[in-house]
């Protein structure tokens, strides 16, 4: 029985591994961090949209399915540094602190995922300069009872609970200035979810969302958007956050209220940047090591977007999840299962 190499221990890689192992294949799962769960674990995602269900309820069973299956060998804190051979005979070098080992594999699944966009590049938002400008990932961690602030939303500058909070949509997405003209596909719903969580926890707070379009295309997303407006009185302003300055120790933002046709200034206590998705460091490394095609933004290109969505440009190397482009957790799990089926099919031939 051939062994499958899965690169990446995020939600997609975990699902692909457990599905393959259940079909009877041996799997080597290589993860660069010393924990499984990818970005969900890294940033301690608290609740998932649109049901506000605990992220742990989703990610824990996926991790458990991998850890409890004896067909899967997990390499934590490890990297795939070199790959040679062709389908169905690959040789891969796996490196970690203990040393290097070379093993044979019948197929390779790349599930290296994404990185949160680093908003330092958007200098006009002051991320990194103003302490109270934070990212949505940082807010996830704050809202999580196991996170740094034990579930409290606190201003990093003085530890106080902010009263007026603005959320900027499309940070590092739909933006040619930073080279990411694509949509991050989750920012709208994550921001709406976080706004609701904040209002639930702090009913006296005011939450403003500065957006261009609310792209609520997922299951239950539009309903969540309606709920945010009707039940939680979250204020959605149609205009992209343009600039953040600090005036008398108070954050001040500029935007245009495009429906009323007027430029506005708004003083707030905290600004949350809905930073989008960029190709992960692991994805860029994997593309280099494996020699597979990337698109203009560094994500991996499928052989055919419609007909072979999980095949890379090289036979025997498969791709799945958010390393192909922005994707939500729900769809990453679907991708993990889909790629497992495709790998199993290819190894039978």
């Amino acid at each position: 029985m051939k062994t499958v190499l899965v690169i990446g221990g995020g939600v997609t890689g975990l699902k692909a591994s457990s599905e393959l192992a259940e079909m009877g294949y041996n799997v080597a799962l290589v993860e660069k961090e010393d924990y499984l769960g990818g970005q969900v674990a890294k940033h301690k995602y608290y609740k998932l949209a649109p049901d506000l269900r605990l992220a742990g309820e989703v990610i824990d069973p996926v991790i458990k399915a991998v850890e409890s299956n004896s067909n899967i060998k997990v390499y934590k804190h490890s990297h795939v540094v070199a790959v040679s051979g062709n389908a169905p005979e690959f040789k891969a070098k796996i490196k970690n602190s203990k040393g290097e080992s070379e093993e044979s594999f019948g197929a390779i699944v790349v599930a290296t995922g994404f990185d949160h966009f680093d908003p330092t590049v958007k200098q006009e938002y002051g991320y990194g300069r103003f302490k109270d400008v934070v990212t949505n990932a940082e807010v996830e961690e704050m809202l999580n009872p196991n996170g740094s602030t034990k579930g409290q939303l606190k201003r990093p500058s003085d530890g106080k609970t902010p009263k007026k909070i603005a959320i900027f949509q499309c940070v590092g997405s739909r933006d040619r200035q930073v080279g990411n003209p694509y949509c991050c596909r989750v920012g709208c719903v994550v921001s709406t979810k976080q706004a609701i969580e904040i209002k639930e926890k702090y009913p006296d707070s005011e939450v403003y969302v500065y957006y261009m379009d609310m792209r609520m295309f997922g299951r239950g997303w539009e309903e969540l958007y309606g709920k945010a407006m009707e039940d939680y009185e979250i204020i959605f302003t149609r205009g992209r956050g343009a600039e953040v300055t600090l005036k008398n120790q108070q954050l001040s933002l500029r935007a245009e209220e495009t429906i009323m046709d007027r430029p506005i200034q708004h003083s707030v206590d905290m600004i949350i940047l809905a930073a989008g998705m960029a190709a992960g460091e692991g994805t860029i490394d994997a593309a280099k090591v494996l020699g597979i095609k990337q698109n203009d933004y560094g994500f991996l290109s499928p052989k055919d977007d419609f007909l072979s969505p999980n095949e890379s440009s090289k036979p025997g190397i498969f791709i799945a999840g958010a390393d192909k482009g922005p994707m939500d957790i729900e769809n990453c799990i679907v991708e993990g299962a889909a790629v497992a089926a495709k790998v199993a099919g290819s190894l039978k031939n």
Partner: peptide, 25 residues
């Protein structure tokens, strides 16, 4: 001109728009 998202970033940053009847958007 590469199409326009009508996002208002230009207006928010425009010193003329802050004081005069002018809107780059």
């Amino acid at each position: 001109l590469h199409g326009c998202l009508n996002c208002g970033t230009c207006v928010a940053n425009c010193p003329a728009a802050a004081f005069y009847d002018y809107s780059p958007r």
